[in-house]
Each structure stands twice: as structure tokens, then as C-alpha cells.
Amino acid sequence: MEHLINNQVKQLEISGIRKFFNMVAGTKDMISFTIGQPDFPTPDHVKEAGKRAIDNNFTSYTHNAGTIELRKAAADFVLDKYKLTYDPENEVIITTGASEAIDITFRTILEEGTEVILPGPIYPGYEPIIRMCGATPVHADTRDNEFRLTASIIKKYITDKTRCIVIPYPSNPTGASLTREEIIDIVDLLKDKEIFILADEIYSELVYDQAHVSIGTFLREKTIVINGLSKSHSMTGWRIGMLFAPQYLAQHILKVHQYNVSCATSISQMAAYEALTAGKDDAVSMKEEYIIRRDYVYNRLCQMGFDIVKPDGAFYFFVKMPSGYTSSFDFAIKLVEQAGVAVVPGSAFSEFGEGYFRLSFAYSMETLSEGLDRMAKFLSK
């Protein structure tokens, strides 16, 4: 009866990141730079808050949008950090990770025949949802602009079908960020257009050389800001995301969220409250360590002769692969087989990622050093 399955679903493929990770998992003596997950443990005080939630039997449904205490903490957090103003009563939704926030946003604003502009290369989690909504992803080539989706590039791709533009900075997979001036240029371009903006800011606490600027501070009425605690507080498994949108929009997104998951996990919500209040600056020490790792990896890759853009945020390098390989997948496979090092082929990040590979530096210095030593030896051959 497979012919009865939704055709949009049948056409989907497993994420190229996971596909490659699963392929090399179990390979003996493998150093993997594939998964974008902090190697720091969740802060102890946050874990203790989760334990207290269980001990105090805080294990029932919460308000669909999340506890009001957590929504207030989330609103205070983005106000303090990024000057974003949202009413916790009706403009903040706590979601099951940022991924669910992306899903319910697209399912609220997209319809058959609409288009979504995304930078290419880009994280592969957006396109499948867009297609399942009957909409069309339109990848804008950013390779000649150091992977930054700026106003001059966006302008080329806008049509009368454009419903949304995704601004996912700092970027996975490239580590690129937008400057304040580049954000303002986009604001000037879009302020008079009936186009939504999905600002995926999950890496906003991991910006290294400049302050993070949210487009939501300028185009509040048409922007959905998505954030979460997976990267900033090393809470990937807790699955807590945060969605901020003006009331007229949030009230409809909440309906989709309600029928999707009812509410985010109550135990995780209590841990998230601790993270956003007592632990609001927990990311600072992690960021300091990431800067050390980034600079080390950058210098090593430059010594190997790679063509790279130094990332300003997140914890990835998006590296142009050496010549002599038929594809990024071919390069990655040979690196696994001959060096025992796993990276993600650039083709996992849209057609504009072909010819590159992604290397995560969310690993210990010891692991990074050994893996890069192996890579250098591989290249020398």
C-alpha cells in the first residue's frame, strides 16, 4: 500500500548530514567532525532544575504556549540580549526545539504555489517542510558574497509569489553573520513588501567578532524570530525552542503548535527557565572556548592551503575542497577511508554547497588536533 503514502513525503530524503554520519558510524578509529552539537555538558544548575521538576511532580501538560513564567523569562532574555520586545502573554511560544518552531511557522504562512527565498548553501532542515506545504524553496547563491544573503542578492530572487525570506544567521553550515548595515539594507528592501521574514537565530549567543543584530528589531510586524537553548546552553536533547512573533501572527501559529505537540515538555521547561534566568550568561564561557578552537582550526586549515572564509558565528567551517575529486561526497568518502576523519559533504546543504565540506569545531582541542593532523597527512599524499 505504499502507493497511498503522501507523495510529498515519499520524495523527501534523509538529511545529508545524518545520512553521512550514519554511514561512517561504527567505523574503527574514526574522528568525526560531522554533528553540530556542543561538546559541553548542560550546566549543572540547569540539570538540577530538571531534576527538581521531576521530584516536585511537575510532569503534566502546561499552557500550550508554555508556562507564563518561562515565556516571561524568554521575553526578558531577548529584550536584554537583542533589544527585541514581545508580550509574553500572546507573542511568545515555547516549542519542542527550534525545528518545531520552523515547522509550525511555515505551515502557518505558506500555501500551495508560494515561494520561500533561502541562502544557498543552507542547513537542510527548511526545504522539506517548505515542500510539504506545497511551496517552492528558492535558493539564492551566496558563494561569491562570503555566504551572506544581502539585499542586493535577495532583490534578484523576489517574485510576486515570494511569501517568506529565511534569514538564518549566524549560519549553519557557513558560520557567516550579517552586519548591522547589511540588516538595515534588507529592512529598506522589504519594509514596503508583503513578505514574511523567518529569522532563525539559534546561534545568536555564539557570535564572535561583532554583536548579534536581529532583523526583528526593525521589521517586527512581519518577522518571526526563532531561537532556542540547544546551542547556547548545550541543551540539544532537552528540545526547547522559542518563537517570537506579533500577536496577529502568533495566535495562528499557536493553533498549529497546539495540534502538533500540545506543549513542550514540562520538565524541560523548568530547566529552560533556570537557563534563561540564573544561566542567562552561561554561553559566555563556551563562546570563549569556541573562539580559541575557531582560531586554531582556521590557522591549521590555512596552513594546509584551503580556501576558507573565517566564520563569525556558530561552530562550523565551510571549506572549499581540494581539486581532483569528482564531488564533495567523493572527497568525504576518501577522507574517511584513508585518514579516518569524517566531515559533511557540501552537497548536503543544497546545490550551492557542492564543492565544499563542513567541519564542526564543537570538539575538544585534543580531538581537533588529532583530526587535523590526519587531514594534513592525507593531503600531503
Rank of each mutant, 00 (worst) to 15 (best):
350 S>E: 09
50 G>P: 07
293 R>T: 05
140 A>N: 09
72 K>A: 04
349 F>K: 02
227 N>M: 07
240 I>F: 03
14 I>F: 12
361 F>I: 08
198 L>N: 01
38 P>Y: 04
162 T>V: 12
145 N>A: 13
23 M>S: 14
140 A>M: 06
66 G>T: 11
187 V>A: 02
59 T>C: 04
123 Y>I: 06
289 E>Y: 05
163 R>G: 10
38 P>F: 09
9 V>N: 11
10 K>Y: 06
68 I>A: 03
141 D>H: 08
217 T>Q: 10
3 H>V: 10
148 R>E: 11
154 I>Q: 05
153 I>F: 10
223 T>K: 08
242 M>V: 01
193 K>E: 11
89 E>S: 15
250 A>D: 00
126 Y>T: 04
165 I>N: 05
274 E>Q: 14
24 V>T: 15
98 A>I: 00
65 A>L: 15
207 V>D: 00
116 V>E: 02
196 F>T: 00
43 P>N: 05
59 T>H: 03
229 L>E: 00
54 I>P: 01
71 R>C: 03
366 E>W: 08
270 M>G: 00
136 T>G: 05
362 A>Y: 07
203 Y>A: 12
283 A>V: 02
103 D>A: 09
124 P>I: 05
212 H>N: 10
379 L>A: 09
21 F>G: 06
84 L>P: 05
221 E>C: 07
136 T>F: 11
125 G>H: 07
73 A>N: 09
72 K>F: 00
13 E>H: 14
290 Y>H: 06
339 A>N: 04
63 H>L: 13
372 L>N: 07
134 G>M: 09
366 E>S: 12
348 A>Y: 00
335 L>H: 04
115 E>M: 09
5 I>M: 11
71 R>V: 01
235 M>I: 06
109 I>Y: 02
223 T>R: 07
180 R>D: 12
35 I>F: 11
180 R>K: 14
22 N>G: 12
211 A>I: 14
291 I>P: 13
310 K>R: 14
89 E>A: 15
157 Y>H: 15
270 M>F: 15
279 G>S: 12
35 I>P: 00
158 I>L: 11
321 M>S: 09
360 S>K: 04
376 A>D: 13
124 P>F: 11
62 T>W: 03
31 I>D: 03
279 G>Q: 06
233 H>W: 09
376 A>R: 07
140 A>Q: 07
280 K>Q: 12
153 I>N: 03
